[in-house]
């Protein structure tokens, strides 16, 4: 075997070029889906052939938040929930670069929910990758806004009484230009989606449904990560370009995955440049009839 290996072109993992290998193995549990999403992100970055210096990866707090520490690019590990706020500043300071925000559901859409919806509304030119594992994994598996109705967590031992968020629908309704959702086992499609999102001008959002065997699976009697991965994959239905509101996460045979939104819209920077150049007409565009206004005042 060793003689055969000597003739092989390489003995290093192909992703090692983008990894801070001195920090590997990472802290994520055995069977965690974040590693798969991370690998997809690195494959997409490699495939895009954009110079490495143009990338910046921002992440918040949480399991997925650790991602920024493992990628060998300019990366920032920001305060809890403020990854998008930080990325907005980064984009404004260096508009020619590509800003990637990679974080978990708790960071991006629980504490950082308002930053998320306003970045989508303004159409900030960034790629947001949300690894959704349906709970707050790092702090011990508490209820998250994405926890399915009835699922058990540390803080809801009888089952979650809440309706979960539909992140893709939220992003689309706030004005994101690219919205896709894939499970961690749709690896090739996920990589393609991230690559498309990277090339998309505007707010692009990719949700990755990832298994969390330690915190989420264990409390719901699915201890093996493989079973969780399979559960998500087997119940998934690919429906591209459907209305994001109909893209439900229903674990009973209707976990909708696919690319839901792919539209063009001017970004915040386009609008901002137009305002600064004085190209935008005074608001409101129809103008105000001064004589009519005077009459009303007199009457």
């Amino acid at each position: 075997m060793s003689a055969q290996q000597a003739t092989l072109p390489q003995a290093e993992h192909p992703q090692d070029a983008l990894l801070r290998t001195e920090r590997i193995p990472h802290i994520w549990c055995a069977g965690c889906g974040i590693g798969i999403a991370f690998g997809s992100l690195m494959s997409a970055i490699t495939k895009s052939e954009i110079p490495r210096d143009d990338f910046a990866v921002v992440s918040g707090i949480g399991c997925t938040g650790r991602l920024a520490g493992y990628i060998h690019l300019d990366s920032f590990h920001t305060t809890h929930g403020r990854a998008i706020a930080f990325a907005t500043g980064l984009k404004l300071a260096r508009p020619q670069g590509k800003v990637i925000v990679a974080s978990g559901d708790g960071d991006l859409l629980a504490i950082g929910g308002n930053h998320f919806i306003h970045a989508a509304r303004r159409n900030m030119d960034m790629t947001v990758i949300c690894v959704n594992n349906f709970n707050y994994g790092m702090t011990g598996g508490q209820l998250a806004p994405s926890t399915p109705y009835g699922a058990k967590t540390t803080t809801t031992p009888q089952g979650s009484p809440d309706e979960p968020f539909n992140f893709c629908s939220l992003a689309a309704s706030c004005g994101a230009t690219y919205v896709a959702r894939w499970t961690a086992l749709h690896i090739r499609r996920l990589t393609t989606a991230i690559a498309e999102a990277l090339n998309k001008k505007g707010f692009s959002f990719v949700e990755v449904i990832a298994p969390c065997p330690t915190a989420f699976g264990r409390r719901n009697k699915i201890r093996r990560s493989l079973d969780l991965l399979k559960l998500y994959y087997d119940n998934s239905v690919v429906k591209n370009h459907i209305a994001p509101g109909e893209a439900t996460i229903d674990f009973d045979n209707n976990l909708v995955v696919g690319k839901f939104v792919d539209v063009e819209r001017p970004t915040f920077l386009d609008h901002y440049a137009a305002i600064n150049r004085g190209e935008v007409e005074a608001w409101p565009a129809t103008g105000v009839d001064a004589s009519a206004a005077g009459k009303r005042k007199a009457g």
């Binding site: 993992h13 992703q15 590997i24 990472h26 590693g35 690998g39 086992l185 690896i187």
Partner: peptide, 21 residues
């Protein structure tokens, strides 16, 4: 390459065997 992309730990990879082998 499926083992390579599915591995969350970057611990496995495949490459094409040299022609002689």
């Amino acid at each position: 390459h499926f083992c390579e992309v599915i591995c969350p730990e970057f611990a496995i990879f495949s490459q094409e065997a040299p022609e002689a082998a």
